[in-house]
Simulated assay, not measured.
Amino acid sequence: MGILGWIVLGLIAGAIAKAVMPGRDPGGIVITMVIGVVGAIIGGFVGQAIFGTGLGSFFDLSTWLLAILGALIVLGIYHVVTSRGRRAHH
């Protein structure tokens, strides 16, 4: 999959992760896009390490599941980090 495919996959995975994960996001659409792309990359590494399969074809279900899982992980970490920062300022 080329770089454009990774970006599109990450954007969609980030949007799905944001829709699935409860709570308000302190970031906007740009943060969601970055989280999605980073999540897709992390999902590929996790899939390779655990299952022996990384991100494959754009139309492969396992590719989408790994990318969404990675985006959920990154979004969860982002929520924890940003919520600590907001509590510290109050």
Rank of each mutant, 00 (worst) to 15 (best):
A40T: 15
I35Y: 00
F45W: 13
R24C: 01
S62Y: 15
G39A: 05
I50E: 11
G28S: 04
G10K: 00
A71K: 00
G36K: 03
Y78G: 00
G10C: 05
G23S: 10
L55F: 00
L69F: 14
R84A: 14
G14R: 11
I16T: 05
K18S: 11
F45N: 09
R84Y: 12
M1D: 14
L66T: 06
S57K: 12
R87S: 15
T53E: 14
L75G: 10
G39Q: 03
D25N: 13
M1I: 10
W64P: 00
T82I: 04
A88V: 11
L65S: 06
R86C: 00
G14M: 09
L75M: 10
L11K: 00
L61N: 02
A15H: 05
V38W: 00
L72H: 10
G54H: 04
W64G: 15
G23C: 07
G43Y: 05
A13M: 13
G39P: 02
S62L: 05
A13Q: 12
H89D: 10
G70Q: 10
G10W: 01
G70L: 09
L4R: 08
V30N: 04
V34Y: 00
G27T: 03
I42L: 14
G44C: 08
Q48I: 09
L61K: 02
H79S: 01
L61Y: 07
A40G: 14
A71H: 01
I77T: 14
A17I: 07
A17G: 04
V20R: 13
I12K: 09
L4C: 04
G44T: 05
L9C: 08
A71P: 02
G76V: 12
W6L: 15
S62F: 15
D25I: 02
G5I: 08
G28I: 02
L72Q: 02
L55A: 03
L69K: 01
F45S: 04
K18M: 02
G5V: 13
T53R: 10
G52M: 08
I3E: 12
V8C: 07
G39W: 05
A15I: 07
A15M: 12
H90S: 06
G70I: 06
L4T: 13
V80I: 15
I77Q: 04
G52W: 06
H90V: 06
H90Q: 09
F59Y: 05
A71Y: 02
G43N: 07
A49W: 13
V38Q: 01
V20M: 15
G85T: 02
A67P: 09
I3Q: 06
R87D: 13
V46A: 15
A67W: 09
G54C: 05
I31G: 02
V8D: 01
G52Q: 09
V80S: 07
L65H: 09
A40F: 08
I3T: 11
G39F: 07
K18A: 14
F58E: 11
A40V: 02
I77H: 07
G23W: 10
I35P: 01
V34L: 13
G2Q: 10
I42N: 08
A49E: 12
G27K: 06
L9D: 08
I31R: 06
G76K: 06
P22C: 04
A40R: 06
